[in-house]
Design a protein around this nucleic acid. Structure first.
Length: 673
DNA sequence: CCCGCTGTGATTTTT
DNA sequence: TCACAGCGGG
């Protein structure tokens, strides 16, 4: 055991050593939350708790991995491995793969990601909507998701379009033997609530639960924790949750802040511990954050402080427009890197909307400042990756219509759109899958002999791979490789790409997927199905070669994506009414969450924080005037240094400043020597 | 099947 | 303004 309890501060140690009963750890930003969680687990193990009986739930794979690695550094690696650390969704997959048959699904169900979900919903809307009726697929998707997360079941017979789309969507998913992300939670909760044998098995397995980022849990996740934490003796559940209500920024995704605000109602008589000592930022930064967040009515009062001293004032810069804002930041970062001897990696620019990054990118590119944008199109969403995964999904479960539709004519194999359409209609009438629909004599009779032959060839091909994949002790990686090779997909790629360069890139994407399966198989026995699961749950590492080579640079990142990260020097841009808080938050009544978003942004900064706003901004195709964010009024003016860019630019730089800058640069040159 | 035209709408995105 | 989806023509 190489962990030391006395390295923790008092509340941290109290949290790490309280093992019995409900425990609420209110961990403010930068208060050493992950450390407390891992030490707490190490402490449990030291106390003789069986590693198998510990469950730690996170939201992201990144968090689960980090926790695993930190624990492995503290205790015997073999013991650490036996602790379950998993995302909610991964645990659900594990539970469902064992017992989903009790709910009428087959064990080889497919997990639909948002793209698949979109495809299915679009299809259903066009089939269901009467002439003149319209429904935004995205709206439908979010309504369905909200409904599922609130534990509502699909309406049996619904008069409204959205109601019938919802009902039909659920029926079709089940027919396709597919589940979406929400179903993973919904069905797990259903299984646990309706099947006492299953419930007992999992309740007995885990005796100590921990939940990270508890403020982000939704209703189903809370329910799931409730079931898993319950013990037969009826004694208080050993459930420890860690979170910060002030950093709840995913309400629009179904997260319920009330889960953490009303924790005592869900788990009576908990020990409540506040972590308020921050190890990240200066007090100027923390007190700015404190001043802002205390304006939120529904929260657990907290006040962050740190031993890092007061630090620089927070700079509030007003720029005439968004272009000047971007150029100011780029110029300044370039200057500060030299004068203050910093790396580009020490800087981050945070914004509300992705669209705001464009001008910044331009400004950085002009000055050849390296930068890194997080987000954007993911490896998983690349066309060739989805295609190849769809092949695998079909080989394992040909009744998966969405995957089948994706590949049925990729490459073109002589099954025309009209034939597919007819097969689809038939499959609906016969209540069977598209794959089965293709094989109905009723269809065969109505198509040309050529098409019939093409269908037969395709069907026998898929059957062949299915049989092969199900043979015991078979080399699934090799099978997968030949499945793709023999499908003619590579040839199709070369043909369909405009440039050889693009074709090359896409081909290597395909190879990455296959190699990814190879690597997966080295330390898993879950086979191709397991690999598809891990891809759907984004467990596989995104191999971005460029990322590694480029190193990094200035981080350009949305406020949402910045949660959990920290940077020495932060720029928070676009602090304008309408952007932060965003216009839509007013109609949606989510101003509190916007405030939390700014709070999250402020608390990312370690040493210096600069906030900017403009008087004019290019939006919706025109220059629109804008006002400073109403949140600015809530900050402590004593900690703010206001800078007017226009004035600063027109005024000549004062001689002493020039002198000191010159000295700083000379010093920098000396250091390089 | 591919390209270009037109219309529309424009937060955030852990799984 | 600009991105992208959907559709009609070549």
């Amino acid at each position: 055991m190489s962990f030391r309890l006395f390295d923790l501060n008092d509340p941290q140690r109290h949290a790490a050593t309280t093992l019995e009963g409900p425990l609420l750890i209110l961990a403010g930003a930068g208060t050493g939350k992950t450390r407390v969680i891992t030490v707490r687990i190490a402490y449990m193990l030291a106390q003789g708790v069986a590693p198998e009986s510990i469950l730690a739930l996170t939201f992201t794979n990144k968090a689960a991995t980090e926790m695993r690695e930190r624990l492995a550094g503290m205790v015997d690696k073999e013991v650490a491995k036996r602790v379950t650390m998993s995302t909610f969704h991964s645990l659900c997959v594990r539970i469902l793969r064992t017992d989903i048959e009790k709910l009428g699904y087959k064990k080889n169900f497919t997990i639909y990601d948002e793209g698949d979900q979109n495809g299915l919903i679009k299809k259903i809307i066009t089939k269901t909507a009467a002439i003149g009726e319209k429904l935004e697929p995205n709206l439908a998707k979010s309504l369905i998701s909200k409904a599922k997360n609130n534990g509502w079941n699909a309406p049996q017979d619904e008069k409204t379009l959205i109601g019938s789309v919802f009902a039909r969507y659920q029926v079709e998913l089940k027919a396709l033997n597919a589940v979406d992300f929400d179903d993973l939670l919904l069905l797990t909760v259903k299984l646990l609530s309706e099947h006492p044998d299953v419930r007992q098995r999992w309740q007995r397995r885990y005796r100590y639960l921990m939940v990270d980022e508890f403020q982000d849990t939704n209703r189903l996740q809370l329910e799931m924790v409730g079931y898993l934490a319950k013990n037969e003796e009826g004694s208080p559940p050993n459930v420890a949750v860690v979170g910060d209500d002030d950093q709840s920024i995913y309400g629009w995704r179904g997260a319920e802040v009330s889960n953490i605000l009303e924790f005592e109602q869900h788990f009576p008589n908990p020990t409540v511990i506040k972590l308020e000592q921050n190890y990240r930022s200066t007090n100027a930064i923390l007190n700015t954050a404190n001043a802002l967040i205390k304006n939120n009515p529904r929260r657990r009062p907290k006040k962050l402080w740190s031993g890092k001293g007061e630090g620089d004032k927070i700079r509030l810069v007003q720029a005439p427009n968004d272009r000047e804002e971007a150029e100011f930041i780029a110029n300044e970062i370039q200057r500060r890197k030299v004068e203050e001897v910093l790396e580009f990696e020490h800087f981050a620019v945070l914004f509300r909307m992705n669209a705001q990054s464009r001008l910044l990118e331009e400004a950085f590119r002009e000055r050849q400042i390296p930068y890194k944008i997080v987000g954007g199109k993911s490896f998983f969403d690349r066309r060739e990756v989805k295609d190849v995964l769809a092949y695998a999904a079909c080989a394992l479960n040909a009744d998966d219509d969405v995957s089948l539709l994706r590949i049925i004519n990729t490459p073109p194999r002589g099954i025309s759109a009209a034939v597919v359409e007819r097969a689809l209609d038939l499959s609906i009438r016969h209540k069977c899958s598209l794959f089965q629909g293709l094989q109905l004599p009723e269809l065969q009779r109505t198509v040309t002999p050529k098409a019939a032959a093409a269908i037969a060839a395709f069907v026998s091909q898929m059957d062949h791979w299915e049989t092969k994949l199900n043979e015991p002790l078979v080399d699934q990686v090799a099978l997968f490789r030949s499945l793709i090779a023999e499908s003619g997909y590579y040839e199709d790629l070369r043909r369909s790409c405009k440039t050889p360069d693009e074709a090359h890139k896409r081909e290597s994407g395909v190879r990455d997927v296959i190699e990814g399966f190879g690597r997966f198989s080295e330390n898993s026995t879950d086979g191709l199905r397991g690999y598809l699961d891990s891809m759907a749950l984004r467990q596989e590492k995104e191999e971005d070669e460029k990322d590694k080579e480029q190193g990094s640079g200035v981080m350009l990142i949305t406020l949402h994506a910045s949660k959990g990260l920290e940077f020495p020097h932060c720029y928070l841009v676009g602090l304008e009414e309408g952007i932060l808080p965003h216009d839509r938050s007013k109609v949606e009544g989510t101003l509190d969450e916007e405030r939390r978003l700014l709070y999250v942004g402020i608390t990312r900064a370690q040493k210096t924080l600069t906030m900017t706003y403009c008087f004019n901004r290019f939006r919706f195709g025109g220059v629109v005037p804008c006002n400073p964010s109403s949140f600015i009024k809530e900050l402590d003016p004593a900690l703010l240094e206001r800078i007017d860019l226009q004035k600063m630019l027109s005024a000549p730089v004062e001689a002493p400043v020039v002198k000191s800058r010159f000295a700083a640069m000379r010093a920098a040159v000396e250091r390089v020597k």
